[in-house]
Simulated scan of single mutants.
Amino acid sequence: MDENPIAGAAREFGGKVQGAVGTVAGNDETRAEGKQNEVGGAAETLVGQARDAVRDVAGQAGDLADRAIDTGRDVLPEAGAAPRRGGETLTQYAKEFPLAFAAMAGAVGYLLAMAIRGRR
């Protein structure tokens, strides 16, 4: 929990008390300072509540992502093996045909550079 809501509520309450004291004493400056503290405390409370809400949403999103990953692993247990097999295939190809692999990698790099440069 963020400490802003607690500090804000305390500041807001203190501002109300200060404003009331200023009103009773007939001191406009004290009453104005009290109102300023009251409004500042309310704003601080809202900021803290917003931070708490963002943290809650972020936590829920993380939980949902974890559940989705777990569900995906349950439904498609072999899905994680596909990229590994592809990497092994590329490694084997690079070992067997190093010049062809280097030429292919250079061509892909060149095409990516042209695509990036063409966007400007």
Rank of each mutant, 00 (worst) to 15 (best):
A103Q: 10
V17Q: 06
K16V: 02
A61V: 07
A115L: 15
E3R: 09
E33H: 12
A10T: 14
G87D: 12
N37I: 05
E29P: 01
A42E: 14
L111K: 11
P5T: 08
G62D: 08
R73S: 10
R11E: 14
V39M: 08
G87V: 05
D28E: 15
L64A: 11
P98W: 02
Y110F: 12
A53N: 06
A32R: 08
R73L: 12
A9E: 07
V57S: 05
G86P: 04
A68N: 02
A68L: 07
R120Y: 13
D2Q: 06
G106C: 00
M104W: 01
V75K: 13
V75M: 12
N37K: 15
K95Y: 00
R85N: 10
N27P: 02
K95W: 04
L64C: 11
A94S: 15
Q36W: 09
L64M: 12
F97V: 02
G106F: 06
L64F: 13
K95I: 00
P77I: 03
R117D: 04
A10M: 09
A20Q: 12
L90Y: 03
E38M: 03
A79H: 07
A20K: 15
G72P: 05
P5A: 14
A7F: 09
G80L: 02
D56C: 04
A10D: 08
F97G: 00
A82F: 02
G41P: 02
G40W: 00
D74T: 15
G106Q: 08
L99H: 06
E44M: 15
A7H: 09
E38Y: 09
R67C: 01
R119M: 11
A68S: 09
A9S: 03
A7K: 04
R67L: 05
R73F: 10
V24K: 03
R119A: 06
G106D: 14
F13Y: 10
E44Q: 10
T30H: 01
R73E: 08
Y93S: 14
V39I: 14
P5I: 15
V57W: 08
K16I: 08
I69P: 00
D28H: 02
D66P: 00
A50N: 06
G87L: 04
P77L: 04
L99N: 08
I69Y: 03
V57K: 01
E12I: 06
A81S: 12
T23M: 00
A61L: 12
P5S: 10
A105V: 02
A58C: 13
Q49H: 03
A53L: 06
A43V: 14
N37S: 12
A102R: 05
Y93I: 07
M114N: 01
R117F: 11
A81L: 09
Q92Y: 09
R119W: 11
L46H: 08
V47R: 07
T23Q: 03
G118K: 07
A82R: 12
L112Y: 05
A50Q: 05
D63M: 07
K35A: 13
A105E: 11
V108T: 14
G62R: 12
D63C: 04
E12L: 10
Q60V: 01
V24R: 00
